[in-house]
Amino acid sequence: MKRRQNMFKIGCHLSTSKGYANMAKEIHRLGGNTFQFFTRNPRGGSAKAIDPADIAEFHELCGEYGIDVILAHAPYTLNACSKDESTRDFAKRTMADDLVRMEQTPGNLYNFHPGSHVSQGVEAGTEYIIQMLNEVLSENQSTTVLLETMAGKGSEIGRTFEELKTILDGVKLSSHMGVCLDTCHVYDAGYDIVNDLDGVLAEFDRVIGLDRLKAVHINDDKNPFASHKDRHEKIGEGSIGTEAFERIINHPSLRELPFYLETPNEAEGYAKEIALLKGLYR
């Protein structure tokens, strides 16, 4: 059982304000062995300078704590498919800079929301996303860039597996791309992971391929199935429920992936959720 517990990659979203080494210490204190963080201010464009001493300590701590993967999250302001050219330019410059910074912690994951097309239509918005990715991805980068599954509110792109597949198919360096599945988002989008998890994953495999699935945002849902609302809830307190999460984290197609909590919690709440999920992992 101990060996199995050590294989379970579970963590939560942490603040980057104190640096990489302190994030490693914090997730270890909370009982996790991986973490997600914003690359910069989630509502703005500034990025904290990287401290080489902090990075060196972080790498040492990763070996000590058994952290073998982390997930960076692009800021919410990154909208690659905006009809506004300056917004698209900001998205491109931000992601390009983030991917350079990610090479300080090589071999990890970088997740972003595909964006909102805002009345242009999915096809036009998708072309903008593909264009950006083809301009910023580098053949020699070690970071895998992930498209996040979306709930489908407003004009979001990524509400269906087919929409994500179209983006992936258009990217020239597709080997550097993957998908992050958000449990709240896919349930909101109409994929019934509560009553038909096997069917949803079979559909994902048919459309995209399970080899593309690299990480899971593990969140309960404040709203009912297929509501397209995107309101995260604490584990076991929403419409997905604890029993469904036990099936999700133990599913053969998911159990080896890293899981990241984005529930409405403070640090100690995350510690309780991490302990809960570790107790459910077999």
Rank of each mutant, 00 (worst) to 15 (best):
residue 221 D to F: 04
residue 21 A to W: 07
residue 282 R to Q: 14
residue 1 M to V: 11
residue 103 E to G: 00
residue 147 L to D: 04
residue 186 V to N: 02
residue 65 Y to A: 05
residue 163 E to M: 03
residue 180 C to E: 01
residue 11 G to T: 02
residue 25 K to M: 07
residue 137 L to A: 07
residue 168 L to V: 06
residue 143 T to L: 03
residue 108 N to V: 00
residue 191 Y to K: 02
residue 281 Y to A: 06
residue 45 G to L: 14
residue 50 I to T: 12
residue 104 Q to L: 04
residue 172 K to N: 10
residue 93 R to S: 15
residue 24 A to S: 11
residue 69 V to C: 07
residue 162 E to C: 07
residue 97 D to F: 07
residue 124 A to C: 08
residue 111 N to Q: 09
residue 81 C to Y: 02
residue 249 I to V: 15
residue 58 F to D: 00
residue 264 P to K: 05
residue 96 A to H: 07
residue 188 D to C: 11
residue 46 S to I: 13
residue 177 M to C: 10
residue 267 A to H: 12
residue 57 E to V: 10
residue 37 F to A: 01
residue 123 E to D: 15
residue 174 S to H: 15
residue 85 E to K: 14
residue 226 A to Y: 10
residue 87 T to E: 13
residue 175 S to N: 15
residue 10 I to Q: 05
residue 137 L to E: 04
residue 16 T to R: 15
residue 147 L to C: 05
residue 131 Q to T: 14
residue 57 E to Y: 08
residue 20 Y to G: 05
residue 254 L to H: 10
residue 41 N to P: 02
residue 128 Y to F: 13
residue 8 F to I: 11
residue 123 E to C: 08
residue 167 I to D: 04
residue 105 T to N: 00
residue 11 G to F: 01
residue 5 Q to D: 12
residue 228 H to S: 08
residue 252 P to D: 10
residue 105 T to G: 00
residue 14 L to I: 06
residue 242 T to F: 12
residue 54 D to W: 13
residue 264 P to N: 02
residue 236 G to T: 09
residue 29 R to N: 10
residue 79 N to S: 06
residue 40 R to S: 14
residue 49 A to Y: 11
residue 117 H to V: 03
residue 90 F to D: 10
residue 263 T to F: 01
residue 226 A to M: 07
residue 35 F to R: 00
residue 48 K to R: 15
residue 124 A to P: 09
residue 71 L to T: 10
residue 11 G to N: 01
residue 237 E to D: 12
residue 38 F to P: 01
residue 228 H to R: 13
residue 280 L to V: 04
residue 158 G to M: 02
residue 214 K to W: 03
residue 161 F to G: 03
residue 245 F to A: 12
residue 5 Q to V: 12
residue 49 A to K: 15
residue 145 V to Y: 00
residue 125 G to D: 03
residue 232 H to F: 00
residue 169 D to I: 05
residue 60 E to G: 08
residue 127 E to C: 12
residue 274 I to V: 04
residue 16 T to K: 14
residue 55 I to R: 02
residue 230 D to A: 05
residue 155 S to C: 06
residue 130 I to L: 05
residue 201 L to D: 08
residue 18 K to H: 12
residue 36 Q to N: 14
residue 45 G to R: 15
residue 41 N to H: 09
residue 105 T to V: 00
residue 198 D to Y: 03
residue 231 R to G: 09
residue 179 V to Y: 02
residue 1 M to D: 09
residue 85 E to Q: 14
residue 22 N to V: 14
residue 103 E to F: 00
residue 246 E to I: 13
residue 216 V to D: 02
residue 108 N to L: 00
residue 77 T to K: 08
residue 146 L to K: 01
residue 73 H to G: 00
residue 233 E to N: 13
residue 274 I to E: 02
residue 130 I to P: 08
residue 8 F to S: 12
residue 109 L to K: 03
residue 90 F to T: 11
residue 199 G to L: 02
residue 96 A to W: 04
residue 229 K to P: 09
residue 67 I to T: 04
residue 130 I to S: 11
